[in-house]
């Protein structure tokens, strides 16, 4: 409660951002702004605490409980602050088949953290996440909002070193297939006719 009174309202000095977000939706759909408002707070504060929940509820004219219900439904809003580098390791099948379990073990060992933890300095948080939609370029490591695709062991090492230096490398987008540029992905000419188990 004390916090509620001393914390400055988040949107007090961001009226333009607030109005832009509210302006996206029709009058009868004001409540739609709940997710973008939560995003706005989280991007800035790396969490959405209870004071912000109350503030958003007030803005939208709904109950704080409803905001909390919505927020807690999704896996990417956080009630507690996450680290500066939020290492999200995709663990779903395609990535798992490409070694994401080993990547998790490696990152866990390197950072000394296990799934869901944040280090004391607030540098790293590590989290196993579900399918990030990068199955053809697995395994994928999402750091904050950036995708690093096809992260092999040495790349993973390089990435962690960069983060420790405070750098955020450019995203890696490595692909085969039409998603690499359709020109480069002509079918192979020699059709292989074998390969089935039967």
């Amino acid at each position: 409660m004390v916090e509620l009174e001393t914390l400055k309202p988040f949107f007090a000095e961001r009226q333009d951002v607030l109005n832009e977000i509210l302006g996206r939706y029709p009058d009868y759909g004001r409540r739609s702004a709940v997710m973008p408002l939560l995003w706005e707070v989280q991007r800035e504060e790396r969490q959405v605490n209870e004071a912000r929940i109350h503030e958003i509820a007030e803005i939208l004219g709904i109950q704080p409980t409803e905001v909390k219900g919505v927020m807690s439904f999704y896996s990417t809003y956080h009630e507690h602050a996450i680290g500066k580098y939020h290492l999200q390791i995709c663990s779903t099948l395609a990535c798992s088949l490409a070694g994401s379990d080993e990547m998790y073990d490696f990152i866990s060992e390197e950072t000394g953290l296990v799934n869901g933890e944040t280090d004391r300095q607030g540098l790293f948080s590590i989290q196993k996440v579900e399918c990030l939609g990068s199955c053809t370029t697995a395994p994928v490591l999402q750091v904050n909002d950036t995708y690093y695709e096809r992260v092999g062991k040495s790349r993973c090492q390089t990435l962690l070193e960069a983060f420790r230096r405070g750098e955020m490398p450019e995203p890696w987008r490595e692909r085969y297939g039409d998603n690499e540029g359709a020109e480069k992905a002509k079918p192979l000419q020699n059709t292989i006719k074998t390969g089935g188990n039967a």
Binding site: T137, Y176, G177, N179, L188, I192
Partner: peptide, 20 residues
Amino acid sequence: RRGVYEVPMGISYREIIFDL
């Protein structure tokens, strides 16, 4: 060559997996 491929319907899975 894991990737996304635009293919005509009716293509065989063999062509997708092996040729593409």
